[in-house]
Simulated assay, not measured.
Amino acid sequence: MIPEGLRHGRYVSLTTFRKDGTGVATPVWYAVDGAELYVWTREDSWKVKRLRRDSRVLVTACDVRGRVAEGAASAEGTARLIGDVRAIRKLMARKYGWQFWLADLPAALVRLGKRPHLGIAVKFPAAEESL
């Protein structure tokens, strides 16, 4: 179940973990659909490389620069990578509107229409499981 404080923000800090267990936080756009939180990212990003090895994540509400306010909503979850990002792109476009297209379209033109992206779906344990 997605914590209420993570349902409606603009950014979350997505923390993935290195081999030595050190967390690496990255502020990202996200969208929520049903019981999962979705992120759209480049398939060659370091967060994807870390997730291929360890699916644990920590998601925390933050601002555009990744700054986390005291008492910000936070939850641990498990991530999975999604190759077909069409549904995630629609969710992001619906949430971020012209800002999403402003980021996506020029990049697609530079890459000659190719969009080397992956989706990240984060599932959180149900409240009764985390007790």
Rank of each mutant, 00 (worst) to 15 (best):
D104F: 11
A107Q: 12
A121T: 08
G77T: 00
L91D: 12
A108P: 06
R115E: 12
G113A: 07
P3W: 01
R89G: 09
V59G: 03
P125E: 08
E129Y: 02
K123S: 15
Y96A: 09
V12I: 12
S13A: 15
P106Y: 05
A87L: 12
C62H: 14
L91G: 11
R50Y: 06
A61N: 06
F17G: 02
T26L: 12
V59L: 06
K123M: 13
G23H: 09
A35K: 05
V48H: 00
S45P: 01
R52M: 03
S13I: 08
K19I: 07
E76H: 11
G5Q: 02
H117T: 15
L105K: 13
G34R: 08
W29D: 12
T41C: 06
K19C: 08
A31L: 12
K90S: 14
T16W: 07
E129G: 00
E43P: 02
T60E: 14
T78P: 05
W101D: 04
D54P: 00
G119V: 04
T41G: 03
G83I: 04
D84F: 03
E36H: 04
E36D: 10
L81M: 01
G21E: 04
K90P: 09
A93F: 10
R10K: 15
L102C: 05
V57C: 12
S130Q: 10
P116E: 09
K123F: 02
P106V: 05
E4D: 14
P125W: 01
R50K: 04
V57P: 09
E43L: 08
K19P: 13
F17P: 08
E76D: 10
A72K: 05
G97Q: 08
G83H: 01
D20S: 07
A75W: 02
S55G: 12
K123P: 04
P27M: 12
Y30S: 08
R10C: 15
V57Q: 05
R56W: 04
V28Y: 04
K49F: 04
G9A: 12
I88Y: 01
W46T: 09
R42A: 14
R56N: 04
R111S: 13
L102R: 13
